[in-house]
Every structure is written in C-alpha cells, then in structure tokens.
C-alpha cells in the first residue's frame, strides 16, 4: 500500500491525485497530496511509476504497515522511492523497460 508522500521531493503537480485509479489521494492545504483513503489502495504501483519527482513509496504489502515500520520512513527508504519508475524506464535519459521485455523467452519455454 502507498505509505510515503515525500513533502521534500513533491513538486505539487497533482499527477498522483489524477492517475490513482482508486482515488486514494487528496490535495493537502499546502499542495502536497495526502493519503486520504489508504484502504482503497490496491498496491498497483501506478502512482510510483507516474510521479515525476520520485516522491512516492508504495510498500509491497496488501495491508498498512505498523507504526515504526521502515516502510513508512522516508529517510530509511532513500533510493527506494521511485524504484518502479526506474524499472518502467520513464524519466530523462532512460530506456523504456518494454524494450528489454523478455516475456517471449518464457512463453516460448512453456510451448516447447
């Protein structure tokens, strides 16, 4: 589930509010999105892929993390923010991940 919106990194572009398919975010008074409906998060990582500032962290768990978890601590997470965007290959100077798609190797193995 979405756990972190980094106020330090956020550029208040509202993209995550728009792209979240289950409408989890609300715009905060300072423009930084707040996680308003965490229970609706389906851990699909789409916000993390679309955030241009690598300001979001979606934890890998289907339930909220307990208080004190490193998965909600921006300082511990560091470079983990925006990891999915890197894998998808979005952002300046990156190769689209789809160019590296190797699914054909694995579907072929099943057919043989």
């Amino acid at each position: 589930m979405i756990e972190v919106v980094s106020a330090a990194r956020c550029v208040t572009c509202d993209i995550c509010i728009r792209v979240c398919p289950t409408d989890v975010f609300e715009r905060g008074a300072d423009g930084v999105p707040v996680i308003a409906r965490q229970g609706d998060c389906q851990t699909c990582f789409m916000c993390e892929a679309h955030c241009p500032a690598d300001a979001l962290y979606v934890a890998p768990f289907a339930d909220p993390v307990p208080p004190g978890s490193p998965h909600a601590d921006e300082d511990v997470l560091g470079a983990a923010l925006g990891e999915y965007r890197r894998l998808v290959g979005w952002g300046g100077g990156r190769t689209p991940g789809s160019r590296l798609d190797k699914n054909h190797l694995f579907t072929r193995r099943l057919r043989s």
Partner: peptide, 19 residues
Amino acid sequence: YPFPSEDGAEVRGSLQGPE
C-alpha cells in the same frame, strides 16, 4: 510502442502495462 528486438527483428508478443 517500443517493442523489444531479437536477432534484429521486433518481438510483438507481450505488452508492458504502464507503457
């Protein structure tokens, strides 16, 4: 759409969802 290539030919059997 940026499909991958294999031996110089595009392989079109898979789609990466976000892209």
